[in-house]
Design a protein around this nucleic acid. Sequence first.
RNA 1: GCGGACGUGGCGAAAUGGUAGACGCAGCAGACUUAAAAUCUGCUAUCCGAAAUGGGUGUGCGGGUUCGAGUCCCGCCGUCCGCACCA
Length: 856
Amino acid sequence: MTDQRFNPLSADKRWQTRWSEDGVFEANNDSAKPRSYVLEMFPYPSGRIHMGHVRNYTMGDVLARFRRMQGYEVLHPMGWDAFGMPAENAAMEKKVHPGEWTRANIAGMRDQIKRLGFALDWSREIATCEPDYYGHEQALFIDMFEGGLVYRKESAVNWDPVDMTVLANEQVIDGKGWRSGAAVEKRKLSQWFLKITDFADALLDGLDELKGWPEKVRTMQENWIGKSQGLQFHFSLAEKQGAIETVEVFSTRPDTIFGASFVALSADHPLAQQLAQKNDALAAFCEDCKKSGTTAAELETMEKRGFDTGLTVTHPLDSSWHLPVFVANFVLMDYGTGAVFGVPAHDQRDLDFARKYALPVTRVVAAAGEEDTAIGTEAYTGPGQLVNSRMLDGLDILTAQQTVIDQAEAEKWGKAQTTWRLRDWGVSRQRYWGTPIPIIHCDDCGAVPVPKDQLPVTLPDDVNFDIPGNPLERHATWKHVDCPKCGKPAQRETDTLDTFTNSSWYFLRFASQPDNLPFDAETVQKWMPVSQYIGGIEHAILHLLYARFWTHALASLGRLDFTEPFESLFTQGMVTHETYFETVENTETGADQIVYYSPDEVEHREGGVFKASGGAPIAVGRIEKMSKSKKNVVDPDPIIEQYGADAVRFFMLSDSPPERDLPWSEAGIEGSWRFVQRLWRLFVSLADETESTAAAQGGEDKALRRKLHQTIAGVAEDIESLSFNKAVAKIFELINMIEKAKPSSDRHNAIRTLASIVAPMVPHIAEEAWALFGETDLIANASWPEFDETLLVEDEVTIAIQVRGKLRDTLSVAKGSDKSTLETLALGSEKVQRTIDGAEIKKVIVVPDRLVNIVI
RNA sequence: GCGGACGUGGCGAAAUGGUAGACGCAGCAGACUUAAAAUCUGCUAUCCGAAAUGGGUGUGCGGGUUCGAGUCCCGCCGUCCGCACCA
């Protein structure tokens, strides 16, 4: 007698062991089968996996298992994005070495992930913090260095003047250092940059190829790259300042040149710097500009302020027209030329600035009829014709732009120019826990790459984090080396690479991992590009752009012969949960403060939510992304232990569309658990039944057979499009029908086939069922069931009968009934006649197999 | 500030411009049980109605296109995400 309850505690472990021992999911580089590379963004080993990971890897796993069943050789690897700040924070707080902390986290998280029974090729596991990964990364960096894609320049960082350390944006809270609380300053450091801008055009054009990417991500990348065409030209300084005689500006709106009322320089602009040397007030203003943050959001929301330098420039189209020159805090040195001309009437920022400093506002573009309408508090950015613009009057915007550009080029004071919002990628980090930059600084030879036979440049283990700052910088011996070129004493670069570099090529290393090279191009070529990449939308720009850039760059260096790494991309939603809180008075300050409670600390009872074990009522807050600060985190581990991997996996796939947020709920996981048990009851019901005994009892069941075939086709389609919630709904419909059906050979077959249909989602119970049915091989090695095309279409359809677009009746007719039949049937409907009530019929619209709409 | 998305029952949602609410959760009623759990059956957008194989309303708000709009267009409102040193 087979157990009437499915027991995941024993089944999960048993099948996971079997899959592992048989090496079922190890990808074969030499396979002759068609290939599919399914990849989920690898995790940062923060300590514990969270529900977001579970959701991400479950989705990838369903696709990977489904592709295997379809006959593909599947590469589905897992690894660790193991460098990063949390390890250093742990080192400071817990006095544990970042490496030790990270490796312990990896070990724990690997166990957690394995308990979910994913079809992963663990033989290819990588951790980016190990020298056998980052050493190869150093080799690739040197390739880029030698290929002219790496350079050094000054760039601003957040500097904490108390801790004497560089801070990440994340560590700056309201302009203050997160530990010291000191006001953060911008400070310039000489840093390494990768020339991503060399690939701006290629990265932009490449987006067109990426048909399998969400439109929104392509748009975000397009906007991020920000190609804009315009006019770059110079204003001549009325009062020459030594060597500086002109101010170079760039504008995408040269048509508005007659609306200019000022020129604004970045505080970092050479002219601003030069003037500041002789002008204490200006120097103070420039210094003040350094106090703002380095993030775009801060720069753009801060109060726009300027400093009038007293200088003027002459207008290029009218030498008698002088414009004042300001230094302004909103002009970025990194974009364009570091100087702009302000047209207040047609740019909101310029308008705000002009109002503040009482500068003229002249409308130069107007929609029809608005030529004389004054500009109030809102700049006009819409279409129209040029006004108040001398020779441009009456022209449309585009023609005016071209006219100005042509004249500038003819008179040699400017030229058409393409500018990018995209800036080069600063990869230097003044931190320990990252890939050491393989460069040696020699007084005589300059920056010399470490010879490849001396790689990897490994991190020293004997470091301490008792004082802030970079331990590599203050390590007694590590940085002191001889120059590889001339042999004289020199210094190692002590900055490490941005962790984004680690995730910019890991997918290549998964595909091929020779000892002596980063990857073997031929093997990589067999697997790449990644067929389906799955991860969070938060990576829509940075990670995905950097990974694309590395692939483009390696292709340009002749190391790869493709440029786009990810054929299809899917961005999944977050796992969310209700928040629980109460507002209490802070005993010291008297101010109200919110105290959050975790789901473990509350209980749901009649009348609401209360503190656990009979406590007081508690407020239920918004449903939000699971986060430590809101304490609304549910740890997957105990859930897996209680309900088993299959129920957890199934929950992750049900209900919410995968790109949308998934609210975690106790009731939801209970529902998934009941689903698993329901499946099991169906499977065991077959244990003593053969197809022929079933047939003998009830013959055949055509409707159920049709439903089965529709489900096989429909679920396959839904899995391919990652619409797991729809696949789940179809499975439920099939099960509902099976449960209501009488015994028959078709019912018997439907249940057997059901095991295969659900196998990618709930693989443990599917294996268990397969064994129960007497199969000796694994269902993981089985094929996706075939379906009969002819059974997919119904032979009877329900037609909607509308009167003036409103549903009045429905009719069941043979599929393919012709229009006149349908019209006659519709007009014969009693309900229709009642609604028409003798009115004149103007028109009858008939859509075969769909509806009839009677217009009166 | 800039860029991107989303908005449908009590909740998660479904719906090539063609019957809005499939499927799941929760709830209600019933069966089974000494009882509970589990399981099974039925109902479940909303308003009017005793009920109807009766009618009205209804996909964030306001307009528009169409025989027909959740879906397309225009304008709002709200919420969320990203913004270059978090990963």
